[in-house]
Amino acid sequence: MNQISNLFPKNWRNLHFIVLVFFSILLLFGGKNITEPASRFVISSFYYPFFKIKNFMMEMTAVAAENDLLREQLVSASSRIAGLEEEARENERLRNLLGFEPPLGYSLVPAKVISVTFDGALPVSAVINRGSRDTVAVDQPVVNQSGLIGRITEVLGNFSVVQLLTDPANRVAARIAETREMGIVKYKTNEGLVLDNFPVQGTIHEGDLIVSSGLGGVYAAGLTVGTVREIFRPDDAQFCKVMLDPAAKFGSLEELFVLRPDIK
């Protein structure tokens, strides 16, 4: 370049300007035959890498947005699946309840537990979604498919309070299903469910089924209360100490039945 410029030392600057103006005029008046190839050349050599980068960035943004959308859909689907699983479990429970028959002279009022009140490890009372509008009344027994749960102690229009067997204030007149010998079932805070007032000379074995006797006037006869777990017979006492396993699981109460006496 310098060798060429040395050939035209004085006019070198002017020569540049002439070439520059010539190219400008070519671009201005050369028409599409000149400008379009020039444009294509500039785009392919200068713009192309940045178009690639921009496309990549836009793709990444789109992928991120799609990712967010899919994440939302996943959360929604997961919660829906959890809901369906819960419904499936409820369905299974209700299927089990379907074959449940009430004692003679009673009809079943199905109810759901709305809330429970705890006193220690187990609940002592529960609120159900049936009340006086469903002809629920005080002292009606409450059961589920496993056995006796408790009795109604308070009734409102759409709700009732159930005193559970686990309330130490609750008593159930009971008998051994096999031998028909009687006692009183109650819940002791430190010992659990026990059969009280059972004479030491009575016939009782571990695993015996305990049912309500119907003598108290509240609970219908023949409702399963529990099974004998352990028997203590002190030498110098009139009554033996009988520990029971309750038939119902009081830690997981959901669907219950109120036993409503049939109107004669």
């Binding site: 400008s24 400008t35 020039a38 500039v42």
Partner: peptide, 25 residues
Amino acid sequence: AAWFGFLAGMVMSAGNPDGMGWQAL
């Protein structure tokens, strides 16, 4: 400066070939 201006004009108006000559000049 003159040549860089010319090329800069070409590059900036590559998307609009009709204005390429004007921008370069």
